[in-house]
Amino acid sequence: MKVVSGFEHSPGAHCGSTAMRDLVRWAGLELSEPMIFGLGSGLAFVYLRGEGLSPTRTVMGRGWNLEQCAADRLGVELVERNTDSPEEAWEHVREALEADKPVMLQCDLKELPYWGSRTPFNGHRIVVAGWDEARKIALVADTHFEGLQEVPLEALALSRRSHHGPMGYARHASWTLEGSPVAPGPEAVLKALKINAETMAVESDVAGLGAMRNFADDVGSWIEQPDAAWCYRYAYQVIEKRGTGGGNFRRLYRDYLMEALEFVPAIKEAQLHVGMSRAASAWTTLADRFQLASESQSPDPQVLAHIESLAEAVYQFESMFWDQVEERLS
């Protein structure tokens, strides 16, 4: 059995920021998961609608460049490798492990036995920190799980070649961290905030504040969808339960802002951590109402009315927050 020297996994809230926190610690710098998430400009908002989707209405709250942005802010290189060959994909991992380097992978968590999930999610991040050639298992660090999980190599290969959403086929993507990370200071924190503000400011029906406006205007019509109960249930899960840290990732970002006060006093002066806390609480309350609506084929009209008003509230809270970021930190 081979385990990467010096690798240590600490359970976390979100797969991507936990994986990066573990890699950065291995590379020599101890940072909190919220700090990694914030340096990765991790907040986003995506709203998708389509009859071919399941559910037909869905929201997402994190940016897909989180890991790369965090590496950029810390002055290290995140080296990506891809291939269409499952055999070569495992060789990429084994080469890194033999060089005593942990490897981050994208995979579909449904195919990871220890999750016991029936729902595909092909956008999950894990770190392979070792393997046992004789038993044909990989040793995996994953989000909230304690220690390293044993995954049959066959199951790992299946999880890496998934074509399911939200990411689709990723050509067996794997990443290693190269270089020594530099402790973040004011410049890194400000850069991360500005990049995240740009992400949210995009004018689009599917991404950023434009998508959030679209979501707030549209959510009242979800009840008309044949899969309305699944739309509500899934929204509840991806806002509050599925590795978000609560409040559609906004609690992780609030905690980042509270740490970043040390580097950028303007954050405290603008009370950005307070504004993000309000947004997180509103998202959690909205998720609770989505859960209630999902539990009946004929949801209480008052619950549906609350969903509409809360969707408007999260849009208003987030608009005010990002306006503050632009005004005070530009």
Rank of each mutant, 00 (worst) to 15 (best):
130 G>K: 05
76 V>P: 01
67 E>T: 09
131 W>G: 03
106 Q>T: 10
124 H>D: 07
82 N>M: 14
55 P>Y: 07
92 H>N: 14
83 T>G: 08
59 V>K: 00
62 R>C: 01
115 W>G: 01
69 C>D: 14
116 G>P: 11
117 S>Y: 09
86 P>I: 03
121 F>D: 09
130 G>I: 05
69 C>M: 13
71 A>F: 05
142 D>T: 09
56 T>W: 12
146 E>F: 03
107 C>V: 04
125 R>H: 15
105 L>H: 06
75 G>R: 09
138 A>K: 01
77 E>W: 02
144 H>A: 14
99 A>F: 07
72 D>P: 00
117 S>C: 02
113 P>H: 14
71 A>H: 02
139 L>P: 01
71 A>Y: 02
124 H>G: 08
104 M>T: 00
88 E>G: 02
68 Q>I: 15
55 P>V: 09
57 R>N: 01
105 L>S: 03
103 V>C: 11
98 E>L: 14
78 L>A: 10
84 D>L: 06
120 P>N: 11
91 E>R: 15
139 L>G: 07
143 T>V: 10
117 S>A: 14
119 T>C: 10
58 T>A: 13
63 G>V: 06
132 D>S: 04
70 A>T: 10
84 D>N: 10
89 A>T: 01
74 L>V: 06
144 H>E: 13
78 L>W: 07
140 V>S: 07
59 V>Q: 05
115 W>T: 05
141 A>Y: 13
91 E>C: 01
74 L>R: 13
85 S>P: 04
115 W>E: 15
135 R>Y: 09
59 V>I: 13
57 R>L: 03
64 W>Q: 12
81 R>H: 11
69 C>Y: 11
58 T>P: 00
103 V>W: 02
107 C>S: 06
136 K>Y: 08
101 K>W: 09
90 W>D: 04
142 D>F: 07
96 A>Y: 06
61 G>R: 00
77 E>K: 08
94 R>S: 03
138 A>V: 04
85 S>E: 02
63 G>A: 14
77 E>T: 13
142 D>K: 04
83 T>H: 08
147 G>M: 12
143 T>E: 12
100 D>Y: 04
91 E>V: 11
92 H>E: 09
124 H>V: 03
96 A>Q: 03
143 T>Y: 07
99 A>H: 02
